[in-house]
């Protein structure tokens, strides 16, 4: 028996919109810890890891660990039928091949049940060890989205370099090149507007902008994005989900052939 009630149902809607273009099918795992997902894109270059902790739900019942194979496009279609203020409850049962999304209006005067078919998905689970990163950049998520969009109109790849001067985003394309530098800037009044750079050593890595632009679909989930870089690891682009958990995107770099 599974019953997860989320007062702020819009969070789930936003999560789906953020990941459905990157990953088409995935297993949602439900355990005492929370509702989670780990899935790679079809070319095994990017990975999304989502965690919505059980404490973040208004009601969380998960009698035993359950994995639900879901077509994210279909789930997104169903969640789009929930109003922006609706409370969403996810209901499932062992041994059934469906999951039900229940939408309740704030005033409880409209209740909708959408039942969706589950599917069997053979998914690979990657072990992602905790790691030390050479540089961690925290910046306004909207600023990062703007940079990725702007650079995406010039080139296909972005070189992200962190030095003590700041973080530099560089691209080159047929029409020319672009270079954007963000310096550390701390805003006491509005910490979410700050750009904070923690650097152990300078690092410079190249990534496909197509993926970065896909990650920025999570911008509505958090005002701040954290970009963790190490020459030994895929970059991690993390959006915290208030009080609940996170959505993390991992992206393998490009290297000179």
């Amino acid at each position: 028996m599974l019953e997860l009630r989320l007062i702020q149902g819009s969070l789930l809607k936003k999560v789906l919109e953020a990941i459905k273009d990157l990953v088409t099918e995935a297993n949602f795992d439900c355990s005492a810890t929370g509702f989670s997902l780990q899935a790679m894109d079809s070319s095994h270059v990017a990975l999304v890891a989502l965690l919505l902790r059980s404490e973040g739900f208004d009601h969380y019942r998960c009698d035993r660990n359950l994995s639900m194979g879901i077509n994210l496009n279909n789930m997104s279609k169903m969640l789009r039928c929930a109003g922006p203020e609706d409370i969403i409850t996810i209901k499932g049962d062992d041994g059934t091949d469906t999951v039900t999304f229940m939408f309740e209006s704030q005033k409880q005067d409209k209740i909708s049940d959408f039942e969706m078919k589950l599917m069997d998905i053979d998914s690979e689970h990657l072990g992602i060890p905790d790691a030390e990163y050479q540089a961690i950049v925290r910046m306004p998520s909207a600023e990062f989205a703007r940079i990725c969009k702007d650079l995406g109109s010039i080139g296909d790849t972005v070189v992200i370099s962190v030095t003590k001067e700041g973080v530099k985003f560089f691209t080159r394309g047929d029409v020319g090149s672009a270079n954007i530098v963000c310096r550390q800037n701390t805003s006491v009044d509005k910490p979410e507007d700050s750009t904070v750079i923690e650097m152990n050593e300078p690092v410079s890595l190249t990534f496909a902008l197509r993926y970065m632009n896909s990650f920025t679909k999570a911008t509505t989930l958090s005002e701040v994005v954290t970009i963790s870089l190490s020459s030994e690891l895929p970059v991690v682009v993390e959006y915290k989900i208030a009080e609940m958990g996170y959505i993390r995107f991992y992206l393998a770099p490009k290297i000179e052939d």
Partner: peptide
């Protein structure tokens, strides 16, 4: 053109 690495270059299946 630079070579796109995969996640398998870094992470292993658990």
């Amino acid at each position: 053109t630079p070579l796109q690495l995969q996640l398998y270059n870094y992470f292993i299946q658990s």
